[in-house]
Amino acid sequence: MHKINLNPLFDELRPVASVFDELLQGGLSTILGEGLATTSPRVNIVKNEKDYIIELAAPGLNKSDFNLDVEQSELNVSVAIKDESGDSENFIRREYRNASFSKSFHIPKDVDTAAISATYENGVLRIALPKINTDENTWSRTIDIN
């Protein structure tokens, strides 16, 4: 009996263009200073039995600042800050700023896109992506040949 794994390669939940992000956040920023690293929010992604959880660190914002869009297999989170500068304030030290950003995530095929929900609490945007049909494992299964 052959086991057919329907889970395609690279179908993990992951930020799109993560390699580019890595480069910006880990590589260039250490050379060029931290300006580049501060504009893209830091992200945790947790895989649970019944869902995936994406957490974006975005302190100091309002719920209404966020836009969440799902298009096909991509989830886009964006924030548009009207007054980005805050330059009227006299910063002695500035390690973070509230900047506009747009971040996309590839949605795995086992996610029920219609049931995606989000909350904003304590400066963290928490997006829950429930898996389809969590009771039985339809994702990886064995098919009998009649």
Partner: peptide, 17 residues
């Protein structure tokens, strides 16, 4: 590197008023 440092340390702004 900077990234690992800030993963576990809060970023700080200091404003002089």
């Amino acid at each position: 590197g900077m990234r690992q440092y800030y993963q576990h340390t809060p970023r700080v702004n200091v404003v002089k008023q």
